[in-house]
């Protein structure tokens, strides 16, 4: 075990609300994600999956427990640390969250623009290559408005990977797609992530895509169930 874990969590708990409204949504979660591993997380709605994802994605402050990503402890971390860490984590959302005023190519370049030390031309070329990789070479100049749901999600994948992350977080990326398209998207995501040796943590409800996982985690009421994978 020379390789360090990409994500290391132990005893992570989280609460929402204050005073009498305070409610625990994560109860002492412990788990690891190894480099290049594809982990799927399932569980009923409202059990805290998204909350866990936002904590790992350095979008929320850690309240209790230990959580480190790429070896950086997130509890008590500064705003700046979290912002820099977010650059190294790719995120794909349930809604595609593309920038409406940018073309497909420009949206992807918003990802590669985060890379330091590359010229504009290089970043642009890379953005094009990523669009080719997700099979949208013909749709470069189209605005999100003119793309189908599946195409938008492909652009979102290209954008997330364009920043060359070593961890990809995806929250129900297929929920807005029909089953065939959903399957394609997930396969594509896994293929591209593995080419980059990028770990993936994906939340999904879709039982038809569970087989892409190296490991399957089940969550219920803020707790991880003993793993089956």
């Amino acid at each position: 075990m020379l390789k360090k874990s990409t994500v290391k969590i132990s005893g992570l708990s989280h609460w929402y609300g204050k005073g009498s409204m305070k409610r625990q949504v994560l109860k002492s979660i412990s788990m690891d994600i190894a480099p290049g591993e594809v982990v799927l997380l399932t569980g009923p709605s409202g059990c805290g999956k998204t909350t866990l994802l936002t904590l790992i994605g350095a979008l929320r402050k850690v309240q209790l427990g230990e959580l480190s990503v790429f070896g950086h402890e997130l509890r008590g971390s500064s705003q700046k640390t979290r912002q820099l860490l977010r650059r190294r984590i790719g995120m794909i959302f349930q809604g595609h969250n593309l920038l409406r005023c940018l073309s497909a190519e420009q949206n992807v370049q918003m990802g590669s623009d985060l890379l330091k030390g590359l010229s504009y031309r290089d970043r642009r070329t890379q953005a094009c290559e990523w669009l080719n990789a997700v099979g949208l070479e013909d749709q470069k100049r189209k605005l999100p408005h003119d793309l189908s749901g599946g195409q938008k999600q492909r652009v979102a994948i290209a954008r997330a990977l364009a920043a060359r992350p070593k961890l990809l977080l995806a929250d129900e990326p297929t929920s807005a797609l029909d089953s065939v398209t959903g399957r394609e998207i997930v396969d594509l995501l896994k293929k591209l992530a593995l080419e980059q040796s990028c770990s993936v943590l994906m939340v999904t409800h879709d039982p038809r895509i569970l087989d892409v996982a190296d490991r399957l985690l089940k969550m219920e009421d803020g707790q991880l169930l003993p793993s089956i994978g």
Partner: peptide, 11 residues
């Protein structure tokens, strides 16, 4: 939401 997305991306 788009600005929030950019922040999530690390901007």
């Amino acid at each position: 939401p788009e600005y929030a997305t950019l922040m999530a991306m690390g901007y």
